[in-house]
Nucleic acid binder design. Structure first.
Lengths: 225, 225
DNA sequence: GAGGATATGCGTACGACGTAAGTGTGTCAA
DNA sequence: TTGACACACTTACGTCGTACGCATATCCTC
């Protein structure tokens, strides 16, 4: 009788949050292609059209998914050296991308503007601040951000995507004419048995080293002026 | 009368090649979402189902699109120094990705195995050979390939994708609480007016410098042994 | 309580999509 | 001429996102 004591109904009230969570669950367990309005609705025990009371359309739902995931980024702390902090931040970002393998596809497929909520901007702010503390000029901070972000996302894409499988299939299957692709044949065995983590660190080192050299060059420039 | 002289009919015969070309045309002009069997069929003046005489299914068509585009990669030549060759190759790869803005999405969305035709493997072979000539160990050749490939693809993704728009919208629109994101606010003006080419070169330099340092370190290591 | 306003879930329907299956028509070999 | 074959077309099914309208549950005002 008391309307405030019992739930509004037997079932729990649907909220935008619950819809987004369901979408993430479906995406991570069954892939982005399975994230349909009908499937997500089933996940929360509702019909497809009911979702539209909480999201404007499917793009809005996907936007919400992006923001929620971005907000789950784990910031590294406890590192004094910016190099260590940069590496930890990069690993954390990679971990997030790996935890949601279709996130990059989602980024690529979203039609509307990318999320600009405070939550999803915090990782950007963190990275920028870090590069600034490393001693880069503001202009180079932006460029370093692009370079790092690009590398990490690109690497994870190549790692998780089809590139690796292609080469496993192609190389292990040995369908390639060796004489036409001698280098490919020579190094192919490194593809399968290379530790992905190690590969990631390799590129990370490359970028850090380059950045250190840049910082050093800049400081000598400014001394020479 | 002579059967070989005239075409089989008024219209030109449909071929797999023509179908793939039409798909690329549609993709580049109207986006990947518009690449539907019906739309591609219309492009070649035919009904949708007729395409299935030349491609096994839609994935097969997209696979063909990938291979054809990969085969259009322009190899740099005339560079003696591997650094110059690496940069030229990277720029060429970026140019190809820019010429087909939805290619990366296509890579990400393809279900079947990635293309492993000789044509589409030649760029890989080229890059591997280059790194090898730079003096890297076979193991590091593979890793450098991943690092470089990752960087380029990631950069183009961030460049063409929504990231740039997001920041333009968000920064120019100044919707961000400045006190919460001080660094973001401080460097934001560099986002819009930074030359993308310059940004690309920046990251490229980072990777090259890192690689040079790696090569140098390796060679001193081997001397020390 | 009574009754209207609002919020929210459901059912139906439409035009896209990929494609399975069957039908017709042109070309060529015999 | 005739049979086989290649290939384009037609129809149809189950999926998708979602516009539209209806039903009900909750809340506000009297």
């Amino acid at each position: 009788m008391d309307p405030s004591a019992t739930a509004t109904k037997d079932r729990e009230r649907l909220t935008r949050e619950r819809v987004i969570d369901a979408a993430i669950t479906v995406m991570d367990s069954e892939g982005l292609d399975s994230v349909t309005m009908r499937r997500v609705a089933r996940e929360v025990g509702v019909e497809a059209m009911s979702l539209y009371n909480h999201v404007h359309d499917k793009d809005d739902l996907l936007q919400g998914v992006c923001e929620r995931i971005m907000a789950s980024y784990e910031f590294p702390d406890g590192y004094d050296d910016w190099v260590d902090r940069a590496k930890a931040g990069a690993r954390s970002w990679r971990r997030l991308l790996q935890a949601h393998p279709d996130l990059l596809r989602l980024f690529a497929e979203m039609h509307g503007p990318a999320p600009s909520s405070p939550e999803s901007l915090r990782p950007t702010e963190f990275a920028l601040t870090m590069f600034r503390e490393a001693g880069l000029a503001d202009r180079d901070v932006v460029q370093a951000f692009h370079a790092f972000g690009g590398y990490i996302q690109g690497f994870v894409m190549m790692e998780a995507g089809s590139i690796k499988e292609r080469h496993e299939d192609a190389f292990i299957g040995a369908e390639i004419p060796e004489e036409a692709f001698p280098t490919l044949a020579a190094v192919s065995h490194h593809w399968a048995d290379c530790d992905p983590d190690e590969q990631f660190e390799f590129g990370l080192d490359l970028m850090i080293r380059g950045l250190q050299a840049k910082v050093a060059a800049d400081s000598t420039d400014s001394l020479a002026e």
